[in-house]
Computed example of a mutant assay.
Amino acid sequence: MDTATVPVIGFIGFGEAAFHISNGLKNAGIQTIHAFDVMADDPNAGVMIKKRMETAEVHKCNYLEELLENSDIIFCATSAKFALSIAQQAAKAITKDKIYVDLNSASPSTKKEVATAIGTAGGLFADAAVMAPVPPHGHKVPMLVSGSGALQFAALMKTYGMDITFINEQAGSSSAMKMFRSIFMKGFTSLLLETLSASYQAGVDKEVLASIQETLSGSTLEELANLLITRTAIHAERRVTEMGEVVATLNEMKLDSTMSQATKTKLQNIVHMDLKNYFGGKVPANYSDVLEAIEELSKIK
């Protein structure tokens, strides 16, 4: 299929994300959208699903095979725990001219298994990592895509306003990027919550925020990584002691210290690796030097 041909879209699962993406695609010029949801005829959950289908002017398919037969691009928008089993079922009916797009927040290994199932059946696969909440953005929600059909999928759907960034042809790459980014984003939020819970109770939350802002401002994230990670490799032992005092203080205040305890544990692991001795007591130049050292020392142990 070339970009001049209007693709027929199919959704496996028609929850909130599928509904908002469908609405956007309809307004952008996609004429026909099919949807199959195993809960569509459920007396309780089915009421909302059918209402969404009617609102988005989506054709309800009664069987998965019906959707696969009549759609050019198939989005799977169900749940990570069902991603592989649905793909294996879809593989029984998918043909080589179809692009199967998995939107589920599944692990890279699951996406690779999905890609194998679809690819073995002759279909093309796109591992799509959704990088923001869908409702505010609709079909324009930012996505990272990888896999055998990712480039073709991006070329087709950018025509209709979708915000798609092609990563590579390896299934799992997009999901890996989303997952590893979440370590920071969710972890940062949790750290911020623990930091502010304590500083607010102590009446210094504004001052603490201003101090952190001063440290973070004016540097790129890579520059901060080069500063913070390299120095931690050398000064981890002292920082373990400091975090021990932090944990004790939070406990005295009767506040949760989960993140601080985890930080202390992470730093203690660095001490056990003896990175300070590995680098001869000198701060390395780049964060990647630390990562390479950790990988090397981990293999030795």
Rank of each mutant, 00 (worst) to 15 (best):
L156E: 05
A90Q: 00
H139G: 04
F279A: 11
Q268C: 10
L255S: 07
I167K: 05
E242V: 11
R181H: 10
M143W: 00
A233I: 03
A80V: 05
A35V: 14
L196R: 05
P135F: 15
R181T: 09
L67C: 09
I49P: 00
L144I: 10
S217C: 14
N23H: 10
T241P: 03
A233Q: 03
A202L: 14
H139D: 11
Y160P: 01
L250Q: 06
I118D: 04
M157N: 08
S22V: 08
M185L: 14
L275M: 07
H137V: 00
F153T: 02
D37M: 05
G24N: 10
E237F: 12
I49L: 13
T116L: 07
K60G: 04
S109I: 00
E65Q: 11
L291W: 12
F180Y: 11
T220K: 08
T263R: 01
G172M: 04
Y278K: 03
G119E: 14
K178V: 05
I86T: 05
T249R: 09
F19K: 07
G10T: 12
M162G: 03
R52F: 01
A126K: 01
V47R: 09
V114M: 12
A128D: 02
G15H: 08
E57R: 07
D256M: 14
D42Y: 06
I118M: 08
M1I: 11
Y100W: 10
V6M: 05
M131L: 15
T230A: 06
Y200M: 14
Y100K: 06
T95Y: 07
K81F: 00
M157Q: 07
M143D: 00
D102C: 02
S79N: 08
A262M: 15
F184G: 07
F166H: 03
V208H: 06
A248S: 10
A225V: 11
D274R: 07
K98C: 13
Q170M: 13
Y100R: 06
Q268V: 13
T95G: 06
N269K: 07
G119F: 15
A248E: 03
D205N: 06
K96T: 10
E252I: 11
P284R: 00
G10S: 09
T241Y: 14
K178P: 05
G29I: 04
S79M: 13
N168I: 03
V283T: 12
E237K: 08
I212T: 07
V58F: 01
T116W: 07
S211D: 08
P284A: 06
E223T: 10
L25F: 01
S107A: 14
F36Q: 01
F153A: 03
T3K: 09
L209Q: 04
S22E: 07
Q31Y: 04
I118F: 05
V247I: 15
Q31E: 12
F82A: 14
F279Y: 08
